[in-house]
Design a binder for these strands. Structure first.
Length: 488
RNA sequence: CGGGGCGUGGCGCAGUCCGGUUAGCGCACCUGUUUUGGGAACAGGGGGCCGCAGGUUCGAAUCCUGCCGCCCCGACCA
C-alpha cells in the first residue's frame, strides 16, 4: 500500500528484491532457486528477445532448437568443459514413477533406471557439436551460423532473482567456421552486437574486453565480454562471446574438406545472454520509487490517466492521442479503471517504470494542455495538446538518451585508477566501482588479489593503447591496465 | 556446503517464552454509500487442515521428537 520498497542506501540487496516483486516482474517458486517470471517481467524479456533476434538475423544467423537433455558421456568429451560444468548439473536417472507399495505416495520406479543418465543442459555446446558432425562435410557447408532460444539449468548453490537462478532463459549462438580468422571475427562481432544492444536499447553502458585465462568460459580459447557497472558499485557480466578454437571440433570429430580436398578441423564460437540482463536493467536505472525502464524496452511506453471526473472530451483526446502514438509504434495504455484514484495510479505506474505518464483533466483541457510526467527524472510539465504526439515521441527519445547519459556519468564517477595496493583496497572498500590498474599478467597475482579483496579482473579492455606501468600488486612490469571490480 | 531467519486466510504480520473460550490485526477481496488534480472514507461481509508427521496432556498454533520447505548472508558461477 504505502511505499514498501526498501531504500537503496539502506539495503541494496533488499531494494532489488522489492523492485522485482513489487513491480510484478517475478516471484520465487515452489522449486528452490527457480523463479516464476510474471507477465510484466516476461513482456520485458520478450522486448529484449525480439530486438536481439532481429540483430542476430541481420548478422546472418538462423534459429534452431536442440534437445533439453544431453547424454552424460557427451559432457566429458571436452576436458575443460566438463571440469567447468560438472559440479552444477541436474541429472536424469530414471524415466518412470510408481505408487509406493506401502501406500505412502509416489516413488521412483527402480526398474526404470536409464542405461545412460541424461544431463539437463547447462549449455549446449556438446549436443550441438555432436549434431554438427553430421551437418558439416565440406567448406561449402561453412560458415554455419545457428542460434537457439532455450532454457538451461545450472544447479547454483546460491541464487538471486534474474541475476542467478537455477533455471534461466537465454539464447546461445553456436557457429562453425572454416578458418580461425573468421571464427575470431564472428566472436568479436557478437560481442559488438551485445554491446550495441546493451547501450542503445537497455541504455546500459558496457566495457568491451576479454577475460583473463582464469575467468574464461570452460573450453574457450578467448572469451569476449561486456561488463556493466551496477548502482551499488558491483560489476555485472552482461554477455559473453567465446572463440572456442578447434576444441569442440576435436572433441566431437567435426572435420571438413577444404577447397584443396584436404581435411581440416572446424573453428567454433559460442555466445549468449540471458534473463540476467533484466537484473542488469533494474540495477542500472531504478530508484526508490520503483522500476525505471528505458523507453525502448518498456512494454508500456506511455500511460494516459484521466483525472476525474472522466468525460467524453477526455476520452476523445485520449483515444486520438493513442491512435497517433500507435501509428508511430509507441505502446500506450489508457487507464480507464474508475475504481482507483489518480494518486494510486501514479504510484503504481512509477513502480512499474512506465517512462511517460499523461494526465488529462478538465482544467487542463480548457487551457489546451495536459500534464506530462517523465519517470526518469520524476519531473512534470504542462504540454500543449497541439502537436502532443510529436512531443511525446521526442520526450521518449530524451528519456532513452538521458538514462544512458546518466548511467555513463555514474560509471565515470565510479571508475577509479589505482597504482598501489593499499589505495586499491581503500577504493574497493569505500567506493567500489571499476578500478583500472596495472597487472603483471600472471594468474598468481590475479588470484592473490581475489583472495585478499574479492575483486576480480572483469576484463582486459579492447582497443587500449599500450601504457606500460607497474603491477598494482606485485610491482612487476605491466603492459597495460585491466579493470578490477567486485562482481555479481 | 557453512551461518542466520522464517513457515499462521491471497500478501505482510501478531499470538508461541508462560498450553485454556469463537486464532487476531493491516492490506487485498465482495456489497453499498459518499468521494476522486499524488497511494480515499464509512458501514456491512466472505475467506484459516496455524508447513508435515508422531508424541505429552482433560485440552496444543503454543510443550517434546523427527522430517520437509523457502528466504537472506558467504564460498562457486551467466
Amino acid at each position: 500500500m504505502s511505499n514498501a520498497i526498501t531504500p537503496k542506501n539502506e539495503n541494496y540487496a533488499q531494494w532489488y528484491i522489492d523492485i522485482v516483486k513489487r513491480a510484478g516482474l517475478a516471484d520465487n517458486s515452489a522449486v528452490r532457486g527457480c523463479m516464476v517470471i510474471k507477465p510484466y517481467g516476461f513482456a520485458i524479456w520478450e522486448k529484449m528477445k525480439n530486438q536481439l533476434d532481429l540483430m542476430f538475423k541481420e548478422t546472418g544467423h538462423q534459429n534452431a532448437y536442440f534437445p533439453l537433455f544431453i547424454p552424460k558421456s557427451f559432457l566429458s568429451r571436452e576436458a575443460e568443459h566438463v571440469e567447468g560444468f560438472a559440479k552444477e548439473c541436474a541429472v536424469v536417472t530414471h524415466h518412470r514413477l510408481m505408487n509406493n507399495p506401502d501406500g505412502s505416495g509416489i516413488i521412483v520406479d527402480p526398474s526404470a533406471k536409464l542405461e545412460e543418465e541424461l544431463i539437463v543442459r547447462p549449455t549446449s555446446e556438446t549436443i550441438i557439436w555432436h549434431t554438427y558432425k553430421d551437418w558439416i562435410k565440406s567448406y561449402r557447408d561453412l560458415p554455419l551460423l545457428i542460434n537457439q532460444w532455450a532454457n538451461v539449468v545450472r544447479w547454483e548453490m546460491r541464487t538471486r532473482l534474474f541475476l542467478r537462478t537455477a533455471e534461466f532463459l537465454w539464447q546461445e549462438g553456436h557457429t562453425a567456421h572454416a578458418t580461425q580468422k573468421e571464427a575470431e571475427a564472428e566472436a568479436k562481432q557478437m560481442q559488438e552486437v551485445y554491446a550495441t544492444f546493451a547501450e542503445q536499447h537497455m541504455a546500459m553502458p558496457v566495457i568491451r574486453g576479454v577475460k583473463t585465462a582464469s575467468e574464461r568460459f570452460a573450453g574457450a580459447e578467448e572469451t569476449y565480454t561486456i561488463e556493466a557497472l551496477m548502482q551499488d558499485g558491483k560489476a555485472l557480466q552482461a554477455g559473453t562471446s567465446h572463440f572456442l578454437g578447434q576444441n569442440f571440433a576435436r572433441a566431437f570429430d567435426v572435420k571438413f574438406l577444404n577447397e584443396n580436398n584436404k581435411e581440416e578441423l572446424v573453428w567454433a564460437t559460442s555466445w549468449g545472454v540471458s534473463t540476467r540482463l533484466i537484473g542488469g536493467l533494474i540495477m542500472t536505472h531504478s530508484d526508490d520509487q520503483g522500476l525505471v525502464l528505458p523507453p525502448k524496452l518498456a512494454p508500456i511506453q506511455v500511460v494516459i490517466i484521466p483525472i476525474p471526473k472522466r468525460n467524453s472530451a477526455i476520452d476523445e483526446l485520449a483515444e486520438k492521442l493513442t491512435k497517433e502514438l500507435h501509428l508511430n509504434g509507441i505502446s500506450v495504455q489508457y487507464d480507464t479503471d474508475e475504481k482507483q484514484r489518480p494518486g494510486y495510479k501514479f504510484a503504481e505506474n512509477e513502480l512499474k517504470g512506465i517512462p511517460v505518464r499523461i494526465g488529462i483533466g478538465n482544467r487542463d483541457l480548457e487551457a489546451g494542455k495536459v500534464e506530462v510526467a517523465r519517470r526518469d527524472t520524476t519531473s512534470k510539465s504542462m504540454m500543449p495538446i497541439e502537436g502532443l504526439a510529436k512531443s511525446i515521441q521526442n520526450l521518449l527519445n530524451d528519456i532513452q538518451n538521458n538514462l544512458f547519459e546518466s548511467a555513463k556519468n555514474f560509471r565515470k564517477e565510479n571508475t577509479s585508477y589505482s597504482d598501489n595496493f593499499d589505495d586499491f583496497k581503500d577504493v574497493l572498500n569505500q567506493k567500489g566501482g571499476f578500478i583500472e590498474a596495472h597487472w603483471d599478467g600472471t594468474p598468481e597475482t590475479e588470484n592473490e588479489i581475489k583472495l585478499k579483496t574479492k575483486a576480480t579482473i572483469r576484463c582486459i579492455p579492447n582497443n587500449q593503447e599500450k601504457s606500460p606501468g607497474k603491477c598494482v600488486y606485485s610491482g612487476k612490469p605491466s603492459m597495460g591496465k585491466v579493470i578490477f571490480a567486485k562482481a555479481y
